[in-house]
Design a protein around this nucleic acid. Structure first.
Lengths: 189, 189
DNA sequence: CGGCGCATGTAACTTGTTACATGATTCC
DNA sequence: GGAATCATGTAACAAGTTACATGCGCCG
């Protein structure tokens, strides 16, 4: 069982879904900390069904190509609960922009300024989207749903993206200074 | 050319190194935003040498098994500089703890408290190490080296880890409350 | 002489991405 | 009729991890 299987199981625990919908939910809601491709989702659904953790959910065909909707089975739910209690093992992070910052003395400050502005724009956008999600959730009354847990996840994204943007601005200032006073290296603080 | 090739090229641009040393540098200095395994480093060094971007650096054998030390070639340096100017494409992030937080309504608060405390400990440790690096660099006089750029990278790590720890504490409070008042869900703010 | 640290390397495997093929429906 | 959207699926490839095999020298 790979992580992909558990993500899918977690989503199916809420409601029956097809592969396409699973992909959309991950792309939108998990945007800032997770991703999956169709090439992983469809084989995963197949293997989940083969091992009895999920099963096809019969549905009337309404439009578009026939969608295979899946629902979680009791043993699927057990597997999910078991996974939740296992220690978190993997935390993977790869930020090419930090690599380029580290090696940036081999290039011009203007090059780094370009990278930083792209990075800043993309994370400002992410922060904006997270704000919309937050408002949306806060407007819906909190019954027995998982809103508070989802808000914790959104808060993580907001904190991290704000940290990214702070760093961006400081680093931009540094490279701007370097560009104008290239010999002396950097401003004294 | 994969990202691994460029990381190695960047490190070789500073000084000649063998595969083992490259691994150590990445494990220590790039700890919080990058990783490479021997299974990637050795084949990459081979292919870099085959394409003339790096070459063996003759060395006297001092102890242990003979180390193959490599140095960058002029065309290797060109390739590095070219890569630095290319847009940053990949930024990958996968945080299982957020997945588990998202799905945590299927498990007990105590389970999440365990995950959070492991996460907190590991990032407090990272923050501590970053502080040591920072002091180390600030004590060495800043000549024509890349200290200021490295300090920018360290600052990124510190900001992000502080954001992680803030989130941890707030989220721990939430699950502690939930544990003691399970029916009502969470405290009002 | 056994374990540890230094050092290289490969094979098997797992994971993940991309491109492609297919096909139905809706909207313009 | 053509584009967009919904939808499934596979094959080829790229990337990355792990386990293993090998071997030297130093230290106790």
């Amino acid at each position: 069982m790979r992580q992909t299987d558990y993500v899918i199981l977690g989503l199916l625990a809420e409601q029956p879904l097809n592969g396409y919908q699973i992909k959309k939910i991950i792309d939108i809601r998990f945007q800032f900390f997770w991703s999956e491709s169709f090439g992983q989702i469809f084989p995963a659904l197949k293997s989940l069904a083969a091992s009895g953790l999920a099963e096809e959910y019969p549905q009337e065909h309404t439009g578009g190509r026939a969608a295979k909707t899946y629902q979680i089975t009791p043993s699927g739910k057990d597997a999910l609960i078991d996974w939740l209690s296992q220690p978190v093992e993997k935390e993977s992070l790869r930020l090419e922009i930090l690599l380029k910052t580290y090696f940036s003395n081999y290039t011009a400050p203007s090059v780094m300024l370009g990278h930083l502005s792209a990075f800043e724009q993309s994370h400002a956008q992410q922060l904006h989207i997270l704000g919309l999600f937050q408002k949306e959730l806060e407007n819906i009354p909190d019954d027995d749903e998982n809103h508070r847990e989802v808000l914790r996840v959104i808060d993580f994204g907001q904190k991290v993206n704000r940290a990214y943007l702070d760093w961006c601005r400081e680093t931009r200032d540094y490279f701007e200074y370097k560009q104008h006073a290239p010999k002396s290296g950097a401003p004294k603080e």
